[in-house]
Simulated scan of single mutants.
Amino acid sequence: MSVWDALVGQPEAVAVLSEAVRRPEAMTHAWLITGPPGSGRSVAARAFAAALQDPADVDGTSHETQTALAGTHADVTVLATEKVVISIDEARNLIGLAQRSPSQGRWRVIIVEDADRMVERTSNVLLKAIEEPPPRTVWILCAPSPQDVLVTIRSRCRLVNLRVPPAQDVADLLVEKDGVDPDLAMECALAAQSHIGMARRLAANPNAREYRAKVLAIPATIRGVGDAILAAGTLVDEATEESKVATAERDAAEKTELLRNLGAEEGGTIPPALRAQVRQLEEEQKRRARRALIDVLDRAMVDLLSFYRDVLVVQLDSDQVLMNRAAESAVREMAAGSAPEQSLQRMQSVGVARTRIAAGAAPLLAIEAMTVALRPQN
């Protein structure tokens, strides 16, 4: 066992990061870890932070290593936002923290997950701190690709690029770490397109597999414009419910905690002097709810893309493995009733919907346009 065990299918990245831990001349003050969703960017960042705190701990069992991996080490700070963007105030807090010497460990490590959510103004605030940090401070930024980070930030970081891990490696992880049945593990690894977190969620949560099955059933239900509009409404409604499940309990707990700290009674009248703080929390929760809805819808569209990809694989008689084993009969039926050109057009329509929603379009309108484009063409 080592700190790198959870970083699946990334031997090249492990080699680079572990060398930096072992050899001071290979170390630098700022790193940018990139890779597609589910490739393990945050896992790599946390493993690197843990290894830096105790390079001699080969087995990854020391107190320094374990607390760094668990996110409780005093000198390892992780900024992981659920908002659409990382705020300037959050960036400034990190700058102040970066100036402090490590209190316990060898390094003060600051990890910024989803660094692509920093707008240009926020990135410029961090620039000086990343460019010239104190001697024992290291920044680790995570983003889908180098192009998602401002060029002035990117140029000051050493790049480590992660790849999509093989599905078999992800399945093996589910079997070994989570005790998942091998067949189910492989089905979930393929369905998640090797996204480790999503594969784990699918394997552990039957409701998640059921929701995904509903999404994959949508193409077969669309026969005309009316069906398309109904399918769009159903998809958005179910995504809304799915996102509420993920945020409602946390929202309620946060509001209860805030009211307790303010000395106000839950369910009672909130004094005027305290209403601004409650409104601020509610606005923050609304932004997080929108982010959650966008994430659920985007995942649904990725699943639809995988469905049409499988249809195209069958139409072209390719030897590629199907990603959706449980939906194979629907895939083959769709492949028999359409042409490869239609599959490509449908995939393009899904991609356009993803882009529109990410750019701020009304989800229902974007999804309606997509489902209309998915209907059979005479």
Rank of each mutant, 00 (worst) to 15 (best):
E241I: 00
E242N: 06
S243D: 00
T247W: 04
L259N: 01
N261E: 15
N261R: 15
L262A: 10
G263F: 00
E265K: 14
E266S: 14
T269G: 10
T269D: 13
L274D: 15
R275V: 15
V278P: 08
V278W: 02
Q280T: 15
Q285Y: 07
R287C: 02
R288N: 10
R290Q: 13
R291D: 11
V296L: 04
L297P: 12
R299C: 13
A300S: 15
V302W: 11
S306C: 11
S306Q: 15
Y308K: 00
D319W: 07
V321G: 05
M323T: 14
M323K: 13
N324S: 04
A327G: 03
E328T: 10
S329N: 12
V331M: 00
R332Y: 08
R332L: 07
A335R: 05
G337Y: 04
S338Y: 02
P340S: 02
E341H: 00
S343T: 04
M347F: 02
V350G: 06
V350S: 00
V352P: 06
V352I: 13
A353D: 07
A353L: 01
T355Y: 10
A359F: 07
G360K: 13
A361G: 06
L365S: 13
I367R: 06
I367C: 04
A369H: 10
V372F: 01
